[in-house]
Amino acid sequence: SKGEELFTGVVPILVELDGDVNGHKFSVSGEGEGDATYGKLTLKFICTTGKLPVPWPTLVTTLSYGVQCFSRYPDHMKQHDFFKSAMPEGYVQERTIFFKDDGNYKTRAEVKFEGDTLVNRIELKGIDFKEDGNILGHKLEYNYNSHNVYIMADKQKNGIKVNFKIRHNIEDGSVQLADHYQQNTPIGDGPVLLPDNHYLSTQSALSKDPNEKRDHMVLLEFVTAAGITHGMDELYK
């Protein structure tokens, strides 16, 4: 796709999030870079409003799984890469995230190029959380598991539907599940690639910047598309 050509090198990323969870309002600002050749993201996020009212790991899918245009699609799968094909005009990404036995996040993001920078601007609203639950009670460990993110075409809306389940580790050794339902639709009216069913395999590492006084998260992530085999004719070339 034409959009794919915008991702040949390292691309700067800007992320802006405004959130409200159970009436606790907050903002997060992030910057870093993405390299789609390797499916690599390096980002640093800062809570610009003081202390973040929710655990950082609960925002990873909104912040970095928010820029799935940096996923590495192998050559034989490039015609299934909706995310890059929607660029530079970008796409709207909407999600509902259900935390098992707790509340939910609803998010709406616009992901697009502004100049040479890929920008992810998000509004997040969280409701029905227990004040002493795993999320508002800050009981999650500061780490992140690997996940597969399942993608299918949504021809009606000229976009994709995505769903997956995140496993958050809790300090007591148990797990907090979070079910994600995602819809992506193009902002522009140019042609986009509608994929066959496949998935993104994601690995994320969270860390801290020892010199950063503000509440923050440093993230390194690798994302690769998989799940579609080479056609038989490919094998015999």
Rank of each mutant, 00 (worst) to 15 (best):
N104S: 13
V10G: 05
M87R: 01
D196N: 12
D172H: 08
G137V: 02
D209V: 03
V60L: 04
K112Q: 07
R214L: 06
K157G: 15
N211K: 11
K100E: 12
D196E: 10
F70L: 08
E141K: 08
G133C: 14
A86V: 10
I228F: 10
V28E: 00
P74S: 08
D128N: 09
N197H: 13
V11L: 07
V223G: 02
N145H: 12
A36V: 10
S201I: 07
N134I: 05
Q79H: 13
V223E: 02
R121C: 04
E89A: 07
I160S: 02
T229A: 12
D132G: 09
E5V: 12
N158H: 04
A109D: 00
N158V: 03
H168P: 00
Y105H: 01
N197I: 09
E131V: 11
F82L: 02
Y38D: 09
F70S: 03
H138L: 04
F222S: 08
D233N: 05
T202I: 15
H76P: 04
T96I: 14
E212K: 00
E4K: 11
I187V: 14
E114V: 13
S207R: 09
N134T: 04
N120I: 02
D132H: 07
P57H: 03
F82S: 01
D75Y: 08
H76C: 08
R72H: 09
I170L: 14
N120H: 02
D233V: 06
F26I: 01
D35K: 03
R167S: 05
L41M: 15
T8A: 12
T62N: 01
D154G: 08
P186T: 13
I135F: 03
S64T: 05
G90A: 00
L59P: 00
I122L: 04
Q68L: 01
V54A: 01
E114A: 06
R95C: 01
Y38C: 14
G9E: 08
T224P: 01
S29C: 15
G173S: 05
K139M: 10
G50S: 02
Y142F: 06
S204T: 13
Q156P: 09
D102N: 02
G66C: 00
G115A: 03
